[in-house]
Simulated scan of single mutants.
Amino acid sequence: MNKELSLDATVLPKELNIILSFIKSESEGSLCSFDADVFTGINWSLFLELIRHHRINPYIYKQIKRIDKAYIPVYVSEELRRDYQQNTFRMLRLSAEMEQLSKLLSNHNIEVLFLKGPALAADLYGDISKRTCSDLDILISIDNLDRAHDLLVALDYVKDDYFSTVLNDWKWRHHHVTYMHSQKNTKIEIHWKLNPGLSYEPTFAELWERRKKSSIASFPVYMLGYEDLFMFLASHGARHGWSRLRWLVDIDRIVRHPMNWEKEIVCLKKYQMAHVGGQALVLASNLLATPLTKEMNTLIEGKRPVHLAHAALFYMKQMIHLHREPLPDDVARYHKHHLFSLMSIQLKLLHILSFLYPYPMDVEMLPLPKNLHFLYFPLRPFMWLWRKTRRHSWS
């Protein structure tokens, strides 16, 4: 590998580097071989914690059950076996729910794309038990949100995301709502965009036109076409700092599938995400030995993809939970900077300008009749300054 593209994996814990070796071997369909001294001094509790944090239990279990049992403590193998079985049962339940949901929405003329879940596992991994999943993520047109809501409520799903909004800012500041079913213990996220906040991305109609049919169910289940799927997986992983290896394994799996990289590169450049795709490839190549072809060189050229890949190691070496709030101050600052660094120049400008758009907190601070909400635009700078001044006076 070109030295300029190399990452220093020694900054990662020894336990994580062993896990990466297991993943590489499983991806290549080979048996991972170790010298006995590699396992000397391993913190097996940390080993298990890392596997669970990165949501890669099935991949590691497949390898561990095939190597010399003298290397691995019995309790570690048993824990991973139980995790593997529980995940298999969960994926089977989600598969049934996915087919039911696809049928329900289709019967009401609502086009739906399944973003991850069992459809992704079956297509990229060839086996739903080889990928973990806790919910179903679906993408529909924003015009169908109300109808989909009514259908889910009729199935005893309860809307869990109740966010405040002003002047319809939810349409672009957010990108999904969550529904929970208490008896089934199932969560469904309905997306109307691929990414939160301001972003350049294909319309639902474009994504639907390029859709791919999954082979997992008897009733038609559709997912993103490979070119759109790679872009989505790369942007999703980047947005979360690649803090879970499961997302990087997804990249490894899709890169090993036949793809039209000429179309992919055009698509990534069109939506100003070529550097994000490059970051994913640099990480996958370095950490998972993902094979890169000459066609992919366009995406990994220059310093930016490598710089972004280096930045992601911050999340991996610390086992950061981005959804466990409040985040430590240093992590919150780093992540805020990282998200900004992922934006194109145009998006950075739009992001800065978006602070002039009213926030729901402005309504809480100064309630106005709905027909006067337009006044929050000129008032926004003053309200921001007032909040900042009050915050400093309290600290």
Rank of each mutant, 00 (worst) to 15 (best):
V158I: 14
A70V: 07
L105A: 08
H108G: 03
S344Q: 15
L233M: 15
L94G: 01
P202F: 08
E78W: 04
E26L: 00
P328W: 02
F230L: 14
R82E: 09
S182I: 08
Y179R: 11
S77E: 04
R239S: 07
M231Q: 09
Y200E: 08
Y71R: 08
H392W: 03
N107D: 10
Y222T: 06
I140Y: 03
K370I: 15
I188W: 03
M223C: 01
V282G: 01
L268V: 06
L46W: 03
L224Y: 12
T88Y: 12
D329S: 15
Y179I: 04
E79C: 12
Q86I: 04
M1H: 14
A205K: 14
E79S: 15
F382L: 13
M316K: 08
H275D: 12
S95A: 07
S243C: 09
I216H: 07
K24E: 14
A238C: 06
D150Y: 02
W172V: 04
P58D: 06
F377P: 15
T10N: 09
E295K: 15
Q85N: 08
C133W: 02
Y59I: 11
E206R: 03
M231G: 03
Y200N: 10
S106F: 08
L283K: 10
A96G: 01
L155N: 11
R304F: 03
M180F: 12
G197S: 13
C267L: 15
I42H: 06
L101M: 14
R211V: 01
I128Y: 04
T389L: 09
R55P: 00
K270R: 12
S199D: 12
M223L: 06
H321E: 10
M383T: 08
F163I: 06
F22E: 00
D330C: 06
F34V: 05
L136F: 10
G29S: 11
W192M: 09
H373R: 15
M316N: 15
R253D: 08
T10S: 14
R93T: 12
Q63N: 02
H373Y: 13
M223F: 01
I138C: 04
Y179E: 10
E4A: 05
G197L: 09
